[in-house]
Design a binder for these strands. Sequence first.
DNA 1: GTTGCCATATGTGTTGACATATTTTGCGGT
DNA 2: ACCGCAAAATATGTCAACACATATGGCAAC
Lengths: 239, 239
Amino acid sequence: MPAKAKQRPVASRTSARAGPKRVRRSDTGAAEIFETLRGRIAQQEIPPGAKLRETDLAKEFSVARTRVRVALTALEQRGLVERIPNRGAVVMRLDMSQAFHIYHLREVLEGLAARLATENAPAETWRAELERFSGPMAELVAKGELDEYIGHYERLRIAIIQAADNPVLAEMLDIVFEKIQVLIRRIIILPGRAEAGRQQHVAMLEAMARGDAAEAERLRRAGLHSARLALEKYQRYIL
Amino acid sequence: MPAKAKQRPVASRTSARAGPKRVRRSDTGAAEIFETLRGRIAQQEIPPGAKLRETDLAKEFSVARTRVRVALTALEQRGLVERIPNRGAVVMRLDMSQAFHIYHLREVLEGLAARLATENAPAETWRAELERFSGPMAELVAKGELDEYIGHYERLRIAIIQAADNPVLAEMLDIVFEKIQVLIRRIIILPGRAEAGRQQHVAMLEAMARGDAAEAERLRRAGLHSARLALEKYQRYIL
DNA sequence: GTTGCCATATGTGTTGACATATTTTGCGGT
DNA sequence: ACCGCAAAATATGTCAACACATATGGCAAC
Protein backbone atom coordinates (compact mmCIF):
# COMPACT_ATOMS: atom_id res chain seq x y z
CA MET A 1 0.00 0.00 0.00
CA PRO A 2 1.99 2.97 -1.16
CA ALA A 3 1.14 6.26 0.41
CA LYS A 4 1.10 8.89 -2.27
CA ALA A 5 3.98 11.28 -2.12
CA LYS A 6 2.86 14.83 -2.56
CA GLN A 7 4.63 16.37 -5.47
CA ARG A 8 3.91 19.66 -7.07
CA PRO A 9 7.23 21.39 -7.28
CA VAL A 10 7.03 23.99 -10.00
CA ALA A 11 4.42 24.76 -12.59
CA SER A 12 2.67 27.61 -10.83
CA ARG A 13 2.22 29.73 -13.88
CA THR A 14 0.12 32.83 -14.04
CA SER A 15 -2.81 30.51 -14.46
CA ALA A 16 -5.13 30.23 -11.51
CA ARG A 17 -6.15 26.65 -12.14
CA ALA A 18 -8.65 25.83 -9.51
CA GLY A 19 -9.75 22.31 -10.24
CA PRO A 20 -8.41 19.13 -8.66
CA LYS A 21 -4.82 19.15 -9.70
CA ARG A 22 -4.33 15.55 -8.78
CA VAL A 23 -3.76 13.76 -12.03
CA ARG A 24 -2.98 10.12 -12.35
CA ARG A 25 0.58 10.21 -13.62
CA SER A 26 3.67 8.50 -12.52
CA ASP A 27 6.39 9.19 -15.04
CA THR A 28 8.73 11.49 -13.34
CA GLY A 29 8.51 15.02 -14.53
CA ALA A 30 6.13 14.27 -17.34
CA ALA A 31 3.35 15.28 -14.97
CA GLU A 32 4.68 18.81 -14.84
CA ILE A 33 4.84 19.08 -18.59
CA PHE A 34 1.34 17.69 -18.85
CA GLU A 35 -0.03 20.17 -16.33
CA THR A 36 1.72 23.11 -17.91
CA LEU A 37 0.52 22.31 -21.40
CA ARG A 38 -2.96 21.57 -20.16
CA GLY A 39 -3.11 24.97 -18.55
CA ARG A 40 -1.85 26.71 -21.63
CA ILE A 41 -4.33 24.93 -23.84
CA ALA A 42 -7.27 25.54 -21.51
CA GLN A 43 -6.56 29.26 -21.53
CA GLN A 44 -5.78 29.34 -25.20
CA GLU A 45 -2.27 30.53 -24.52
CA ILE A 46 -1.70 27.90 -27.14
CA PRO A 47 -4.52 28.44 -29.64
CA PRO A 48 -6.63 25.65 -31.13
CA GLY A 49 -5.09 24.19 -34.22
CA ALA A 50 -1.54 25.00 -33.15
CA LYS A 51 1.07 22.34 -33.65
CA LEU A 52 3.00 21.11 -30.68
CA ARG A 53 6.46 20.08 -31.79
CA GLU A 54 8.10 17.51 -29.60
CA THR A 55 11.60 18.79 -30.19
CA ASP A 56 10.68 22.36 -29.29
CA LEU A 57 8.92 21.31 -26.10
CA ALA A 58 11.83 19.09 -25.16
CA LYS A 59 14.18 22.04 -25.50
CA GLU A 60 11.88 24.38 -23.61
CA PHE A 61 11.52 22.07 -20.64
CA SER A 62 15.08 20.80 -20.90
CA VAL A 63 14.07 17.18 -20.95
CA ALA A 64 14.43 14.32 -23.35
CA ARG A 65 11.82 13.97 -26.02
CA THR A 66 10.56 10.78 -24.44
CA ARG A 67 8.96 12.65 -21.57
CA VAL A 68 7.33 15.13 -23.86
CA ARG A 69 5.95 12.17 -25.71
CA VAL A 70 4.45 10.71 -22.57
CA ALA A 71 2.87 14.05 -21.75
CA LEU A 72 1.43 14.30 -25.24
CA THR A 73 0.00 10.81 -24.96
CA ALA A 74 -1.76 11.87 -21.78
CA LEU A 75 -3.09 15.02 -23.41
CA GLU A 76 -4.31 12.95 -26.30
CA GLN A 77 -6.17 10.57 -23.99
CA ARG A 78 -7.84 13.55 -22.38
CA GLY A 79 -8.93 14.79 -25.76
CA LEU A 80 -6.99 18.05 -25.58
CA VAL A 81 -4.75 17.35 -28.53
CA GLU A 82 -5.02 15.20 -31.59
CA ARG A 83 -2.05 13.22 -32.69
CA ILE A 84 -1.66 12.56 -36.38
CA PRO A 85 0.86 9.86 -37.26
CA ASN A 86 4.16 11.27 -38.41
CA ARG A 87 2.76 14.75 -38.38
CA GLY A 88 2.65 15.66 -34.76
CA ALA A 89 0.12 16.87 -32.23
CA VAL A 90 -2.32 19.70 -32.81
CA VAL A 91 -4.49 21.36 -30.20
CA MET A 92 -8.07 20.18 -30.52
CA ARG A 93 -10.52 22.68 -31.89
CA LEU A 94 -13.82 22.98 -30.08
CA ASP A 95 -16.67 23.16 -32.54
CA MET A 96 -20.18 24.13 -31.67
CA SER A 97 -21.68 20.67 -31.74
CA GLN A 98 -19.12 19.43 -29.28
CA ALA A 99 -19.77 22.43 -27.08
CA PHE A 100 -23.44 21.49 -26.94
CA HIS A 101 -22.58 17.89 -26.18
CA ILE A 102 -20.42 19.02 -23.32
CA TYR A 103 -23.11 21.32 -22.00
CA HIS A 104 -25.57 18.47 -21.92
CA LEU A 105 -23.06 16.60 -19.81
CA ARG A 106 -22.39 19.52 -17.51
CA GLU A 107 -26.10 19.76 -16.92
CA VAL A 108 -26.37 16.31 -15.40
CA LEU A 109 -22.90 16.16 -13.85
CA GLU A 110 -23.08 19.45 -12.02
CA GLY A 111 -26.65 18.68 -11.10
CA LEU A 112 -25.43 15.50 -9.47
CA ALA A 113 -22.66 17.40 -7.74
CA ALA A 114 -25.15 19.86 -6.30
CA ARG A 115 -27.35 17.05 -5.02
CA LEU A 116 -24.52 15.11 -3.43
CA ALA A 117 -23.05 18.26 -1.90
CA THR A 118 -26.40 19.09 -0.35
CA GLU A 119 -26.73 15.59 1.02
CA ASN A 120 -23.21 15.38 2.39
CA ALA A 121 -22.45 18.80 3.81
CA PRO A 122 -24.31 20.44 6.69
CA ALA A 123 -26.81 22.99 5.45
CA GLU A 124 -25.03 25.90 7.16
CA THR A 125 -22.11 25.36 4.81
CA TRP A 126 -23.89 27.30 2.11
CA ARG A 127 -25.10 30.26 4.15
CA ALA A 128 -22.03 32.39 3.51
CA GLU A 129 -22.05 31.68 -0.20
CA LEU A 130 -25.75 32.41 -0.37
CA GLU A 131 -25.24 35.81 1.17
CA ARG A 132 -22.33 36.56 -1.10
CA PHE A 133 -24.36 35.74 -4.16
CA SER A 134 -27.38 37.64 -2.92
CA GLY A 135 -25.61 40.86 -2.00
CA PRO A 136 -22.09 41.73 -3.12
CA MET A 137 -22.24 39.67 -6.26
CA ALA A 138 -25.20 41.62 -7.58
CA GLU A 139 -23.10 44.75 -7.42
CA LEU A 140 -20.20 43.10 -9.18
CA VAL A 141 -22.53 42.16 -11.98
CA ALA A 142 -24.02 45.62 -12.13
CA LYS A 143 -20.58 47.19 -12.27
CA GLY A 144 -19.38 44.70 -14.84
CA GLU A 145 -16.58 43.38 -12.62
CA LEU A 146 -16.68 40.09 -14.40
CA ASP A 147 -13.23 38.87 -13.38
CA GLU A 148 -14.10 38.94 -9.73
CA TYR A 149 -17.51 37.53 -10.49
CA ILE A 150 -15.95 34.59 -12.28
CA GLY A 151 -13.56 34.11 -9.40
CA HIS A 152 -16.35 33.66 -6.87
CA TYR A 153 -18.29 31.56 -9.33
CA GLU A 154 -15.31 29.26 -9.62
CA ARG A 155 -14.75 29.06 -5.90
CA LEU A 156 -18.33 27.99 -5.34
CA ARG A 157 -18.12 25.41 -8.06
CA ILE A 158 -15.00 23.91 -6.51
CA ALA A 159 -16.57 23.92 -3.06
CA ILE A 160 -19.60 22.05 -4.35
CA ILE A 161 -17.51 19.44 -6.08
CA GLN A 162 -15.42 18.92 -3.00
CA ALA A 163 -18.49 18.59 -0.81
CA ALA A 164 -19.97 16.11 -3.25
CA ASP A 165 -17.08 13.86 -2.27
CA ASN A 166 -17.11 11.72 -5.37
CA PRO A 167 -13.66 11.49 -6.97
CA VAL A 168 -14.91 9.91 -10.15
CA LEU A 169 -17.42 12.69 -10.65
CA ALA A 170 -14.75 15.27 -9.84
CA GLU A 171 -12.45 13.84 -12.46
CA MET A 172 -15.13 13.86 -15.13
CA LEU A 173 -16.13 17.41 -14.38
CA ASP A 174 -12.49 18.32 -14.63
CA ILE A 175 -12.25 16.74 -18.05
CA VAL A 176 -15.29 18.50 -19.45
CA PHE A 177 -14.42 21.77 -17.78
CA GLU A 178 -10.92 22.11 -19.13
CA LYS A 179 -12.33 21.87 -22.62
CA ILE A 180 -14.86 24.67 -22.32
CA GLN A 181 -13.16 26.91 -19.80
CA VAL A 182 -12.66 29.56 -22.40
CA LEU A 183 -16.28 29.36 -23.55
CA ILE A 184 -17.56 30.29 -20.13
CA ARG A 185 -15.99 33.72 -20.26
CA ARG A 186 -17.66 34.33 -23.56
CA ILE A 187 -21.05 33.20 -22.39
CA ILE A 188 -20.98 35.34 -19.29
CA ILE A 189 -20.73 38.51 -21.31
CA LEU A 190 -23.86 37.67 -23.27
CA PRO A 191 -26.79 40.03 -22.66
CA GLY A 192 -28.29 39.38 -19.25
CA ARG A 193 -26.39 36.16 -18.79
CA ALA A 194 -24.33 37.20 -15.77
CA GLU A 195 -27.35 38.41 -13.82
CA ALA A 196 -29.41 35.40 -14.84
CA GLY A 197 -26.65 33.08 -13.68
CA ARG A 198 -26.39 34.90 -10.39
CA GLN A 199 -30.11 34.59 -9.68
CA GLN A 200 -30.07 30.94 -10.56
CA HIS A 201 -27.20 30.39 -8.17
CA VAL A 202 -29.08 32.20 -5.44
CA ALA A 203 -32.06 29.94 -5.97
CA MET A 204 -29.89 26.85 -5.90
CA LEU A 205 -28.04 27.97 -2.79
CA GLU A 206 -31.34 28.60 -1.05
CA ALA A 207 -32.34 25.02 -1.76
CA MET A 208 -28.97 23.80 -0.53
CA ALA A 209 -29.17 25.92 2.60
CA ARG A 210 -32.44 24.28 3.47
CA GLY A 211 -31.12 20.83 2.65
CA ASP A 212 -33.38 20.20 -0.32
CA ALA A 213 -31.01 18.08 -2.40
CA ALA A 214 -33.42 17.13 -5.16
CA GLU A 215 -34.43 20.74 -5.70
CA ALA A 216 -30.81 21.87 -5.69
CA GLU A 217 -30.09 19.38 -8.45
CA ARG A 218 -33.11 20.47 -10.44
CA LEU A 219 -32.14 24.14 -10.16
CA ARG A 220 -28.53 23.57 -11.10
CA ARG A 221 -29.65 21.66 -14.15
CA ALA A 222 -32.10 24.36 -15.06
CA GLY A 223 -29.36 26.96 -14.77
CA LEU A 224 -27.02 25.14 -17.08
CA HIS A 225 -29.88 24.39 -19.41
CA SER A 226 -30.57 28.08 -19.84
CA ALA A 227 -26.87 28.74 -20.30
CA ARG A 228 -26.91 26.21 -23.10
CA LEU A 229 -29.87 27.93 -24.71
CA ALA A 230 -28.04 31.26 -24.53
CA LEU A 231 -25.05 29.62 -26.18
CA GLU A 232 -27.32 28.30 -28.88
CA LYS A 233 -29.01 31.62 -29.46
CA TYR A 234 -25.82 33.64 -29.68
CA GLN A 235 -23.53 31.03 -31.15
CA ARG A 236 -22.67 33.19 -34.13
CA TYR A 237 -21.24 35.79 -31.78
CA ILE A 238 -19.13 33.32 -29.87
CA LEU A 239 -17.39 30.91 -32.16
CA MET B 1 -2.52 19.43 -52.04
CA PRO B 2 -4.29 16.11 -51.93
CA ALA B 3 -5.78 15.21 -48.58
CA LYS B 4 -4.64 11.73 -47.75
CA ALA B 5 -7.16 9.40 -46.19
CA LYS B 6 -5.77 7.53 -43.22
CA GLN B 7 -7.03 4.08 -42.71
CA ARG B 8 -6.51 2.27 -39.47
CA PRO B 9 -6.69 -1.50 -39.33
CA VAL B 10 -9.51 -2.40 -37.01
CA ALA B 11 -8.40 -5.03 -34.59
CA SER B 12 -11.08 -7.64 -34.40
CA ARG B 13 -10.55 -9.64 -31.30
CA THR B 14 -12.12 -12.64 -29.68
CA SER B 15 -13.61 -10.45 -26.99
CA ALA B 16 -17.08 -9.18 -27.82
CA ARG B 17 -16.44 -5.62 -26.76
CA ALA B 18 -19.60 -3.77 -27.50
CA GLY B 19 -18.85 -0.15 -26.64
CA PRO B 20 -17.48 2.47 -29.00
CA LYS B 21 -14.16 0.99 -29.96
CA ARG B 22 -12.91 4.25 -31.32
CA VAL B 23 -10.18 5.21 -28.95
CA ARG B 24 -8.06 8.25 -29.46
CA ARG B 25 -4.68 6.69 -30.14
CA SER B 26 -2.11 7.26 -32.74
CA ASP B 27 1.01 5.35 -31.77
CA THR B 28 1.19 2.51 -34.16
CA GLY B 29 0.20 -0.79 -32.71
CA ALA B 30 -0.02 0.46 -29.17
CA ALA B 31 -3.75 0.78 -29.70
CA GLU B 32 -4.10 -2.96 -30.11
CA ILE B 33 -2.18 -3.66 -26.95
CA PHE B 34 -4.29 -1.14 -25.13
CA GLU B 35 -7.52 -2.70 -26.34
CA THR B 36 -6.41 -6.20 -25.52
CA LEU B 37 -5.32 -5.37 -22.00
CA ARG B 38 -8.42 -3.29 -21.45
CA GLY B 39 -10.56 -6.26 -22.38
CA ARG B 40 -8.64 -8.62 -20.18
CA ILE B 41 -8.87 -6.29 -17.23
CA ALA B 42 -12.56 -5.56 -17.72
CA GLN B 43 -13.34 -9.27 -17.73
CA GLN B 44 -10.93 -9.97 -14.90
CA GLU B 45 -8.90 -12.28 -17.08
CA ILE B 46 -6.21 -10.30 -15.37
CA PRO B 47 -7.37 -10.04 -11.78
CA PRO B 48 -7.31 -6.83 -9.74
CA GLY B 49 -4.03 -6.32 -7.99
CA ALA B 50 -2.06 -8.25 -10.60
CA LYS B 51 1.20 -6.78 -11.73
CA LEU B 52 1.69 -6.06 -15.40
CA ARG B 53 5.34 -6.48 -16.26
CA GLU B 54 6.45 -4.49 -19.24
CA THR B 55 9.04 -7.00 -20.36
CA ASP B 56 6.59 -9.89 -20.28
CA LEU B 57 3.99 -7.99 -22.26
CA ALA B 58 6.63 -6.89 -24.75
CA LYS B 59 7.58 -10.50 -25.31
CA GLU B 60 3.97 -11.66 -25.56
CA PHE B 61 3.05 -9.10 -28.19
CA SER B 62 6.44 -9.22 -29.86
CA VAL B 63 6.94 -5.50 -29.72
CA ALA B 64 9.43 -3.19 -28.14
CA ARG B 65 8.90 -2.22 -24.55
CA THR B 66 8.24 1.35 -25.56
CA ARG B 67 4.89 0.49 -27.08
CA VAL B 68 3.84 -1.44 -24.05
CA ARG B 69 4.76 1.62 -22.07
CA VAL B 70 2.54 3.82 -24.20
CA ALA B 71 -0.33 1.40 -23.76
CA LEU B 72 0.19 1.34 -20.01
CA THR B 73 0.18 5.12 -19.92
CA ALA B 74 -3.17 5.09 -21.66
CA LEU B 75 -4.54 2.48 -19.26
CA GLU B 76 -3.32 4.59 -16.39
CA GLN B 77 -5.10 7.67 -17.72
CA ARG B 78 -8.28 5.67 -17.95
CA GLY B 79 -7.91 4.59 -14.37
CA LEU B 80 -7.62 0.89 -15.13
CA VAL B 81 -4.14 0.43 -13.77
CA GLU B 82 -2.06 2.26 -11.25
CA ARG B 83 1.53 2.93 -12.02
CA ILE B 84 3.91 3.07 -9.09
CA PRO B 85 7.28 4.58 -9.87
CA ASN B 86 9.96 1.98 -10.36
CA ARG B 87 7.60 -0.75 -9.29
CA GLY B 88 5.39 -1.25 -12.27
CA ALA B 89 1.72 -1.23 -13.07
CA VAL B 90 -0.92 -3.03 -11.06
CA VAL B 91 -4.54 -3.54 -12.05
CA MET B 92 -6.78 -1.17 -10.13
CA ARG B 93 -8.88 -2.75 -7.45
CA LEU B 94 -12.50 -1.64 -7.31
CA ASP B 95 -13.55 -1.01 -3.76
CA MET B 96 -17.13 -0.57 -2.67
CA SER B 97 -17.00 3.16 -2.19
CA GLN B 98 -15.74 3.64 -5.71
CA ALA B 99 -18.44 1.33 -6.98
CA PHE B 100 -21.05 3.54 -5.36
CA HIS B 101 -19.46 6.63 -6.82
CA ILE B 102 -19.60 5.09 -10.24
CA TYR B 103 -23.20 4.07 -9.81
CA HIS B 104 -24.15 7.60 -8.94
CA LEU B 105 -22.56 8.63 -12.18
CA ARG B 106 -24.23 5.93 -14.20
CA GLU B 107 -27.53 7.11 -12.84
CA VAL B 108 -27.24 10.56 -14.35
CA LEU B 109 -25.24 9.61 -17.44
CA GLU B 110 -27.49 6.81 -18.60
CA GLY B 111 -30.48 8.91 -17.68
CA LEU B 112 -29.18 11.58 -20.00
CA ALA B 113 -28.55 8.99 -22.70
CA ALA B 114 -32.13 7.77 -22.44
CA ARG B 115 -33.48 11.29 -22.72
CA LEU B 116 -31.35 12.22 -25.69
CA ALA B 117 -32.08 8.94 -27.43
CA THR B 118 -35.79 9.52 -27.02
CA GLU B 119 -35.49 13.04 -28.37
CA ASN B 120 -33.32 12.09 -31.33
CA ALA B 121 -34.67 8.80 -32.61
CA PRO B 122 -38.16 8.24 -33.98
CA ALA B 123 -40.44 6.66 -31.40
CA GLU B 124 -40.93 3.50 -33.47
CA THR B 125 -37.28 2.70 -32.98
CA TRP B 126 -38.03 1.27 -29.56
CA ARG B 127 -41.07 -0.83 -30.42
CA ALA B 128 -39.10 -3.96 -31.21
CA GLU B 129 -37.01 -3.69 -28.08
CA LEU B 130 -40.10 -3.06 -26.01
CA GLU B 131 -41.71 -6.22 -27.26
CA ARG B 132 -38.56 -8.20 -26.70
CA PHE B 133 -38.31 -7.03 -23.12
CA SER B 134 -42.00 -7.57 -22.50
CA GLY B 135 -42.23 -11.11 -23.87
CA PRO B 136 -39.20 -13.28 -24.59
CA MET B 137 -37.00 -11.66 -22.01
CA ALA B 138 -39.39 -12.55 -19.20
CA GLU B 139 -38.95 -16.19 -20.10
CA LEU B 140 -35.20 -15.88 -20.20
CA VAL B 141 -35.28 -14.47 -16.69
CA ALA B 142 -37.64 -17.17 -15.49
CA LYS B 143 -35.42 -19.86 -16.94
CA GLY B 144 -32.28 -18.26 -15.61
CA GLU B 145 -30.72 -17.81 -19.03
CA LEU B 146 -28.71 -14.91 -17.78
CA ASP B 147 -26.06 -14.90 -20.49
CA GLU B 148 -28.60 -14.27 -23.20
CA TYR B 149 -30.42 -11.82 -20.96
CA ILE B 150 -27.22 -9.84 -20.48
CA GLY B 151 -26.60 -9.95 -24.18
CA HIS B 152 -29.90 -8.25 -25.02
CA TYR B 153 -29.45 -5.88 -22.13
CA GLU B 154 -26.11 -4.85 -23.59
CA ARG B 155 -27.46 -4.48 -27.09
CA LEU B 156 -30.17 -2.14 -25.90
CA ARG B 157 -27.71 -0.09 -23.90
CA ILE B 158 -25.48 0.32 -26.95
CA ALA B 159 -28.45 1.23 -29.13
CA ILE B 160 -29.52 3.93 -26.69
CA ILE B 161 -26.06 5.41 -26.49
CA GLN B 162 -25.78 5.46 -30.24
CA ALA B 163 -29.15 7.09 -30.63
CA ALA B 164 -28.21 9.67 -28.03
CA ASP B 165 -25.60 10.81 -30.53
CA ASN B 166 -23.30 12.49 -28.08
CA PRO B 167 -19.70 11.30 -28.44
CA VAL B 168 -18.52 12.89 -25.22
CA LEU B 169 -21.26 11.17 -23.28
CA ALA B 170 -20.51 7.90 -25.05
CA GLU B 171 -16.88 8.12 -24.09
CA MET B 172 -17.65 8.79 -20.45
CA LEU B 173 -20.10 5.95 -20.25
CA ASP B 174 -17.45 3.77 -21.77
CA ILE B 175 -14.97 4.79 -19.10
CA VAL B 176 -17.30 4.12 -16.20
CA PHE B 177 -18.65 0.95 -17.74
CA GLU B 178 -15.35 -0.78 -18.30
CA LYS B 179 -14.63 -0.40 -14.63
CA ILE B 180 -17.76 -2.06 -13.34
CA GLN B 181 -18.50 -4.49 -16.13
CA VAL B 182 -17.78 -7.42 -13.87
CA LEU B 183 -19.97 -6.02 -11.10
CA ILE B 184 -23.02 -6.08 -13.32
CA ARG B 185 -22.95 -9.81 -13.66
CA ARG B 186 -22.85 -10.16 -9.93
CA ILE B 187 -25.68 -7.77 -9.36
CA ILE B 188 -27.95 -9.46 -11.85
CA ILE B 189 -27.89 -12.71 -9.93
CA LEU B 190 -29.08 -11.01 -6.77
CA PRO B 191 -32.53 -12.09 -5.59
CA GLY B 192 -35.21 -10.60 -7.83
CA ARG B 193 -32.76 -8.22 -9.49
CA ALA B 194 -33.00 -9.61 -13.02
CA GLU B 195 -36.80 -9.44 -13.08
CA ALA B 196 -36.84 -6.01 -11.47
CA GLY B 197 -34.40 -4.74 -14.04
CA ARG B 198 -36.49 -6.18 -16.83
CA GLN B 199 -39.66 -4.49 -15.63
CA GLN B 200 -37.86 -1.20 -15.23
CA HIS B 201 -36.61 -1.47 -18.78
CA VAL B 202 -40.09 -2.19 -20.01
CA ALA B 203 -41.39 0.92 -18.27
CA MET B 204 -38.58 3.02 -19.73
CA LEU B 205 -39.08 1.63 -23.22
CA GLU B 206 -42.77 2.43 -23.01
CA ALA B 207 -41.91 6.01 -22.25
CA MET B 208 -39.44 6.06 -25.10
CA ALA B 209 -41.92 4.49 -27.49
CA ARG B 210 -44.35 7.27 -26.75
CA GLY B 211 -41.65 9.91 -27.04
CA ASP B 212 -41.71 11.01 -23.43
CA ALA B 213 -38.05 11.90 -23.04
CA ALA B 214 -38.22 13.36 -19.54
CA GLU B 215 -40.06 10.34 -18.23
CA ALA B 216 -37.60 7.99 -19.92
CA GLU B 217 -34.77 9.76 -18.16
CA ARG B 218 -36.55 9.60 -14.84
CA LEU B 219 -37.25 5.91 -15.21
CA ARG B 220 -33.72 5.04 -16.24
CA ARG B 221 -32.39 6.89 -13.26
CA ALA B 222 -34.85 5.16 -10.98
CA GLY B 223 -33.77 1.80 -12.35
CA LEU B 224 -30.12 2.41 -11.71
CA HIS B 225 -30.95 3.89 -8.34
CA SER B 226 -32.61 0.68 -7.27
CA ALA B 227 -29.69 -1.31 -8.66
CA ARG B 228 -27.42 0.75 -6.47
CA LEU B 229 -29.57 0.05 -3.45
CA ALA B 230 -29.41 -3.66 -4.19
CA LEU B 231 -25.65 -3.40 -4.44
CA GLU B 232 -25.60 -1.65 -1.11
CA LYS B 233 -27.84 -4.18 0.56
CA TYR B 234 -25.95 -7.22 -0.65
CA GLN B 235 -22.47 -5.76 -0.80
CA ARG B 236 -21.10 -8.40 1.54
CA TYR B 237 -22.07 -11.07 -0.95
CA ILE B 238 -20.48 -9.32 -3.88
CA LEU B 239 -17.08 -7.96 -3.01
C1' DG C 1 4.67 32.84 -64.96
C1' DT C 2 2.96 28.53 -63.72
C1' DT C 3 3.20 23.58 -62.94
C1' DG C 4 5.16 19.18 -61.83
C1' DC C 5 8.94 16.68 -60.03
C1' DC C 6 12.94 15.64 -57.29
C1' DA C 7 16.35 16.65 -53.55
C1' DT C 8 16.75 18.37 -49.09
C1' DA C 9 15.29 19.37 -44.50
C1' DT C 10 12.55 18.87 -40.57
C1' DG C 11 10.14 16.22 -37.31
C1' DT C 12 8.09 11.95 -35.66
C1' DG C 13 8.43 6.81 -34.71
C1' DT C 14 11.35 3.08 -33.11
C1' DT C 15 15.03 0.65 -31.27
C1' DG C 16 18.52 -0.96 -28.19
C1' DA C 17 21.66 0.09 -24.73
C1' DC C 18 22.46 2.19 -20.30
C1' DA C 19 21.22 4.04 -15.46
C1' DT C 20 18.64 3.52 -11.37
C1' DA C 21 15.44 1.54 -8.17
C1' DT C 22 13.50 -2.55 -6.09
C1' DT C 23 13.07 -7.36 -4.97
C1' DT C 24 15.18 -11.63 -4.19
C1' DT C 25 18.81 -14.52 -2.79
C1' DG C 26 22.42 -16.11 -0.03
C1' DC C 27 25.42 -15.90 3.78
C1' DG C 28 26.84 -15.21 8.40
C1' DG C 29 25.82 -14.01 13.14
C1' DT C 30 23.07 -14.50 17.27
C1' DA D 1 15.96 -21.77 13.28
C1' DC D 2 15.60 -16.86 12.78
C1' DC D 3 16.69 -12.40 11.79
C1' DG D 4 19.77 -8.81 9.38
C1' DC D 5 22.66 -7.29 5.94
C1' DA D 6 24.70 -7.18 1.54
C1' DA D 7 25.17 -8.49 -3.23
C1' DA D 8 23.05 -10.34 -7.34
C1' DA D 9 19.10 -10.42 -10.21
C1' DT D 10 15.18 -8.31 -12.11
C1' DA D 11 12.33 -4.60 -13.70
C1' DT D 12 11.51 0.03 -14.66
C1' DG D 13 13.11 4.83 -16.12
C1' DT D 14 16.06 7.46 -19.31
C1' DC D 15 18.57 8.60 -23.11
C1' DA D 16 20.72 9.22 -27.67
C1' DA D 17 21.14 7.61 -32.15
C1' DC D 18 18.83 5.72 -36.14
C1' DA D 19 14.87 4.83 -39.48
C1' DC D 20 11.06 6.58 -41.79
C1' DA D 21 7.43 9.71 -43.26
C1' DT D 22 6.03 14.21 -44.49
C1' DA D 23 6.70 19.04 -45.61
C1' DT D 24 9.71 22.48 -48.11
C1' DG D 25 12.20 24.67 -51.65
C1' DG D 26 14.50 24.84 -56.00
C1' DC D 27 14.86 23.62 -60.79
C1' DA D 28 13.49 22.44 -65.23
C1' DA D 29 9.83 22.01 -68.68
C1' DC D 30 6.05 24.02 -70.84
